[in-house]
Design a binder for these strands. Sequence first.
DNA 1: CGGCGTCTTGAAGATTTTCAAAACTGGTGG
DNA 2: CCACCAGTTTTGAAAATCTTCAAGACGCCG
Lengths: 241, 241
Amino acid sequence: MYPNERCEKTSCETCLHARKKFAQYLNPIEYQALENHKLCKVFKKGQYLFSSGDIPRYLFCIYSGQVKLFKEGINDRALIIRFENDKNVIGYRSLIANDIYRLSAVAMEDTKVCMIEKSYFIFLMQNHREMLTEITKKINDELELVQERMLSLAQKNIRERTAEFLLFLAKTYGMEADGKTLNINLSRQEFADYVGTSLESVIRIISEFDKDKIISTHRRKITILDMDQLIRTANVLQYTI
Amino acid sequence: MYPNERCEKTSCETCLHARKKFAQYLNPIEYQALENHKLCKVFKKGQYLFSSGDIPRYLFCIYSGQVKLFKEGINDRALIIRFENDKNVIGYRSLIANDIYRLSAVAMEDTKVCMIEKSYFIFLMQNHREMLTEITKKINDELELVQERMLSLAQKNIRERTAEFLLFLAKTYGMEADGKTLNINLSRQEFADYVGTSLESVIRIISEFDKDKIISTHRRKITILDMDQLIRTANVLQYTI
DNA sequence: CGGCGTCTTGAAGATTTTCAAAACTGGTGG
DNA sequence: CCACCAGTTTTGAAAATCTTCAAGACGCCG
């Protein structure tokens, strides 16, 4: 089910990502002990890290690469909930709630992850109140984001939602060196799976934006030409860079 | 903005609702102290308990009545996020995250609430790890629910979503004595605001269900006649009573 | 009884999906 | 280097779904 390749461990000691996240709360001994409670794997493009319904056994810490988290719906259609890249930790929600996974996670490119044993993560959580507080806030932010998306799905048309998604990508994943080309590459299908529409519809809207000189596209590269127009098209009340 | 009426305090001591929720974690002294850190109010039908953007000052404990929590969207349209009645506590999310309110709350009928001061609630939270754990799980459940709704909004048509909503109401708020009439009264507009569609569309669908003998309606009373057919119409993978 | 708010129905028009076909891309092997 | 293949992207057209506007019905309350 999950054909993947165990690889040599990356040291948490030198991994800034880990330190930036939950690991900042650990004392040196705990930090050292992490090494004995983890394994590292490489997931090839398209492989599942976990699947909705599975029982969580690890906290996943993305060392490099990119992952999409999604719900599988009707007729093989998916709804992408979010993307996570090498700055982030995934799978904490189900661990804390002691629940099965409610989302599936797939590597969008070859992705290296450090997998910390559930029991050790729980142990750390119990000894560090601030970690729980931090994660609670994170879940809270997620909830607010999802509620906003729900509002868009309920009240906006595909043109507005697609514009909104482009703004979200710009804000969240930033730009390339030129300052206007999106720093994330998605397939048209992934666009559709996030916006919540059909492949063809999202293609038509992106073509329109291109024709209207709001963006320019070259394969999967998208350059934002007219940010003001994009914000107006998204019909958002307030947009903060 | 919030014309409402302060009323005499209801004792937490004798309030089973409070005890059933967070208050179960408190010791007798803390429980007693609650009395000095709260006030009680009656909100008349249609009045706001709080409004999106407000700064939270209280934890709201619903003593009697019913409240809807919603996001205000485009052109005066609302999206109802959830309903809460006299079994529940609202407003903890923004308190914990130290955030402004992201939802608005309106009394659907005359509603009596006990309002616990923010600072005392935070104090209690800091002394009771289990409270934070409990609330984190609650937020987690909410997140899962909202993600499922997002999937429906993205992939299902209004007929399916309306059937799904009826199932949700049956499961969550139960039935009247006859075992088949929904124990909650909503206006057609509230139906539309939850399902994420227009007033007219939801009315047409409810009429169809009535014509097809899946439900029978009398004003706001809805009786489920054919549960199997309703489940099939909702197109849910698994439905648990 | 009259008035108001809620509910219902009809019909036109807009939006979106679906199906089908064609164009384009990158990689592979001759 | 070129032909070919599979996967992805694009376009067109018909059909389904949904919204909007307008008008009328219903039920409740003073």
